[in-house]
Design a protein around this nucleic acid. Sequence first.
DNA 1: ACGCTCACG
DNA 2: GACGTACGTGAGCGTA
Length: 932
Amino acid sequence: MAPKFGKGCHLHLIDGSAFIFRAYHALPPLTRKSDGLPVGAVSGFVNMLQRYVEGNNGPDAATHVAVIFDKGSHTFRNELYDQYKANREAMPEDLRPQIPLTRTATQAFNIACEELEGFEADDIIATLAHQARDAGGRVTILSSDKDLMQLVGGGVEMLDPMKNKRIDAEGVVEKFGVGPDRVVDVQALAGDSVDNVPGAPGIGIKTAALLINEYGDLESLLDRAEEIKQPKRRQTLIDHRAQIELSKKLVQLDCDMALPFGLDDLEVRDPEPEVLMGFLAEMEFRTVTKRIAEKLGIAPPVIEDTAPTSEAAAPEAMPFDADKYECVMDEAALLVWIDRIHDRGYVAVDTETTGLNEMIADLVGISLCVEAGHACYIPLTHKAAATDDLFGSDAVAEGQMDLDRCLALLKPVLEDPAILKIGQNMKYDAKIFARLDIAVAPIDDTMLMSYAMNAGLHNHGMDTLSERYLGHTPIPIKPLLGSGKSAITFDRVPIDKAVAYAAEDADITLRLWQHFKPQLHVKQVTTVYETLERPLVPVLAQMERHGIKVDRDTLSRMSNAFAQKMAGLEAEIQEMAGRPFNVGSPKQLGEILFDEMSLPGGKKGKTGAYATGADVLEDLATEHELPGKVLDWRQLSKLKSTYTDALQEHINAETGRVHTSYSIAGATTGRLASTDPNLQNIPVRSEEGRRIREAFVAEPGKVLVSLDYSQIELRILAHVAGIDALKQAFADGLDIHAMTASEMFDVPLDEMTPEIRRQAKAINFGVIYGISGFGLARNLRIPRGEAQGFIDRYFERFPGIRKYMDDTVAFAKDTGYVKTLFGRKINTPEINAKGPHAGFAKRAAINAPIQGTAADVIRRAMIRMPAAIEGMPAKMLLQVHDELIFEVEEDGANALIDAARDVMENASDPAVKLDVKLAVDAGQGANWAEAH
DNA sequence: ACGCTCACG
DNA sequence: GACGTACGTGAGCGTA
């Protein structure tokens, strides 16, 4: 039996959290080779412990030691002050899963590892320090945290492990200007921005120490505040007395906690070699394992090199085995899974629902996975199998957990800020859960990780990713659901089959995450993922759930009007053609025009059909009346079928609104894409089409507000290509197309004609698209030589543009990708191709950084918008590439415009300093036509 | 399933 | 010198 802690004993208290953060920030993001688990911080932590153990000898050696950790984010200090530590940044996602491993590491070293739910490490340290001091022993606190300095004195010292500097009472005076016993008084006055302790405004440590030294202690100072000579200081102390007293309570450590262990439990013990080696081998720390083995005089364990052999198409070590998936049918089984999730700190989640539209689909079951190969499916609302007929029954299948009970148990997990939820296209699952009053956070999304790394290489659906990166073809859904008329919904899928399919999705997602997470750093897109992809998910989910009100009657009336006009045109067209035919059939139309009517210019495409596009028909319109009528008919047909008819189908029965869905990883450049319905291509260019926007309305008492970036792509071009004349024109607020025309054609601005300006505008856009003589000629309907002349002249006037284009293409050829100003990578795999593809790839490479940078800018604005309009009676509804649409109470419209414009115009700050300022135009009205 | 056509930025 | 070309999307329709 060891002697009781007392005189001659020396207790070391290690501030575990400080160790972890120091380790995390000091080391590059290391991952375990076999499965990609992030372990950088664990590695650093182990090294620090090892160094500590090695150095623990001589006169200052410990007889007792413990590593103390924080546990739980809510402590008695939050009860005193809800803003305590409120401005602290969230823990980095790749650190989260490492926290439990640091506990294991401490235990592996056979060092006491202590934490108490709801208590900060500092309070445990304070209590132990006092106990040891009172027992007559020495104490050394290994930390540089100034909050612990109040404990120094009477045998208690601190040791900054990095600087290896001891801090005694004298050191504290150096730092705070007062002795350890008055440190809390100074802190109470000075406050602390890191922990969000308010203190007294305008008083820092220097002034606080001065005051405390003059008046003795905080209480005397506050009682005699009237005596202070400086008027401002006096008033501050009088006005903020309560706040100062509160601050003191926040910084004062609890030295008298009831602890479920004693000093004698903390005696220094040698590590058990097997346990320590086992842990180090499990972590696959080769170097430190070898070094410690040498110290212990034993043979190091063999650590298999299980690294994937090649980066792409590396099958994970563990094969996929559907038989290992568990079907969770009762509460006990679910609780086991919830425990596993808490132990891990992360979980892959997937939902199964009755459909693809997450505004309508109902939850059918949930899959979870915490470790490759080990996944479960929780069936919740599956229907019983058919007994008597083909259509199944409406009775629920037996053996399923109660839906509400399951959600009640999972909600705290899905909302736990300490547990990372991993998904493939999490926006979908988050929206399903949001409808069930569960706010899923924080999240990681494998689809978006792939997008950040692989945009331009392939799509980012689960099937593609699983095949490419796991070498595994997922179970197809088709055989389960069938297709066409006989298709069933997932709740009709037999539970055993559902388990194999659904659990596998979670398993795949987790493995993809393990594969991608360390790759983000390697590919240098962590910032893109963290600032432009991941934070957009909740913003879009919110917008989509809100939807925009669409007036059915307006659309219906328009549909009828279009139908009537179309019928009239159709009759005229067929009359002219001399026989009835399907006006909507390009094939039949081509035959009428070029074979039967023998009009000139009939050109057949690769499929052997005549081209009848708008440009062809426009040319023919000079020859005959019929093509013009077809153009009119086509316009109406488009408006009716794609808009006035189809939009009505998309009005949600429950909300009366239309809820689009934005794909974040669809367009290669970083742009969003809108589907089901596409609300990014609602007509505006033609007068007739624009009226469709009148059907997009605000609720009574509210207005729609539209804010759009003015010429954002040309501004970005001016910046990236460094064109001073363009920058100056934007700075002067000039008409940029007129200015280009003036520069190119030597026409003074006050003599500018619309025609010349139109040509310059076409050239400006052409430049953004990777201009070619042929393309410009076709667009402007001028001879190719003339168009080429324009382009030559343009490059003469703006040589920087040519250089930008050449440099961009050269960079793409060299690296295989191009980058936006914010670091987004767009892969250009075709750039070195020969043949006709080459031109396409070149122009795409020239365009991508410009279009992509604009896309990044508005993404940044959108991500910041919720906080900027917080408290306003306003909602962000839609994004149309360079435009954001809001719905806001009439009285709040102007304030909203001010706030939103500010966010949009400054969206590039502080990451990128643009040479050209961004300008935003705004409008408001009862409907979208008025607001735009 | 695919190409044509056309709506948007 | 010819090749075929403006960049990025999604939806509806006809045709295979």
